[in-house]
Nucleic acid binder design. Structure first.
Lengths: 206, 206
DNA sequence: GCCATTCTCCATCAATTGATTGATTGTCTC
DNA sequence: GAGACAATCAATCAATTGATGGAGAATGGC
């Protein structure tokens, strides 16, 4: 790998992917404060100059990391088909998606870190904000559908409840103890929190 | 202030407070990545060497910031008396407390930043974790009380629901639009999410 | 008045860090 | 094989940054 010089072909995309992966790992370990271009280059097994050849600046590097995370979430979301499922079932798919991200740990930590950074880095915000808006919108839509078909509470505010759902999932990771166990408990509670306590019959209303 | 030399009395505590305040403001503006001891000293109006006289190292400085935030939250929590209030009323006090923190903006951002940093800085974790545990425990207790007296759902999981409440409050700040408006919407939704849809009469149960 | 203590600043260090320069190697095209 | 291009590295720069040493000024106790 490192000793045998790889074929000097046009693998800029490949190198950028490697760099993004190394950067993500380091961000997960030390946060943005501890992120050093040298460390990234070392982990990839290349010279700093080579790193700068593929990614011109640290700013561009952070943007690259944000994009790589966004692409991963997009791909993950598309992996599970939502066709013809009831609102509650789709909500459970969202839980499953997030649970999967949690299991890998790294992606979740990097996402938290990026969300924080997006507060003052417009380039990162430009990547993360649409992602978060999409996520929030998806869940709000699920909740609105469930409210309409009577499976969720009639007094549900879809947008506000979406924040509650997302926030609950994230906050479940701040408690001590096993991460996945905590998540499952909160997910179950979220389900009870949005379900209709007095579900309608499938028929019409007067 | 800067021209007139202040009386060189034993005001180390005062200086440390000033330093903590300046550090908090700078963390809110630029995050931990952008936190420079020189900038803090400049904002306080003292020399870097003087800063290091009062706070020996940057590590100690971060710890100081964490402590100052913890003390503020403690003081804020004690300001409102909870005596003799119903569970729902106490929950609303928690909402009011958080809303107050939000209005100041800085404390909320610094808290988020510190929570992130606590992940890999044991000294920060030692300050922040008990604080978060206390907050979570308080809310879980309120929820358990409300469940017991029938004002909250009977199938409530207090610990999980506490994560949901805290997470919802925090997540309300990630949505676009006015922060306080978003918070109020989510707080109202959280209230509906935990309330008992079929409240008992005030009498006994068989 | 004298001295210890506290607080402050000027000057400076040593290390770190993002970035660049110039040269080298291998591959593809013609 | 000559030229163009992609990819890589060793060496180095300039700026930043946390931290220190030593000296000066104000205060309080005696």
């Amino acid at each position: 790998m490192t000793t045998t010089p790889e074929p000097a072909r046009r693998d800029t995309d490949h190198r950028r992917t490697e760099i993004a992966a190394a950067a993500r790992a380091l961000i997960a370990e030390r946060g943005f404060e501890g992120l050093r271009t040298r460390d990234i280059a070392e982990r990839v097994g290349i010279n700093i100059a080579t790193l700068h050849y593929h990614v011109p600046s640290k700013e561009a590097l952070v943007e690259l990391v944000a994009q790589s995370l966004r692409d991963e979430f997009k791909a993950q979301h598309l992996r599970r088909s939502r066709d013809g499922l009831a609102a509650l079932e789709v909500l459970r798919l969202e839980f499953a998606d997030f649970r999967e991200t949690l299991a890998g740990r790294e992606a979740f930590v990097v996402m938290s870190e990026l969300s924080e950074r997006a507060r003052r880095d417009p380039k990162v915000a430009a990547v993360m904000q649409p992602l978060q808006a999409f996520w929030h919108g998806q869940i709000a839509e699920i909740l609105a559908r469930g409210r309409a078909d009577g499976s969720f509470r009639a007094d549900l505010d879809p947008a506000a409840a979406a924040s509650m759902v997302i926030g609950g999932m994230i906050a479940s990771q701040r408690s001590p103890g096993d991460n996945l166990v905590n998540f499952d408990r909160v997910a179950a509670e979220l389900e009870r929190a949005v379900r209709n306590p007095a579900p309608q019959h499938s028929g019409l209303l007067p």
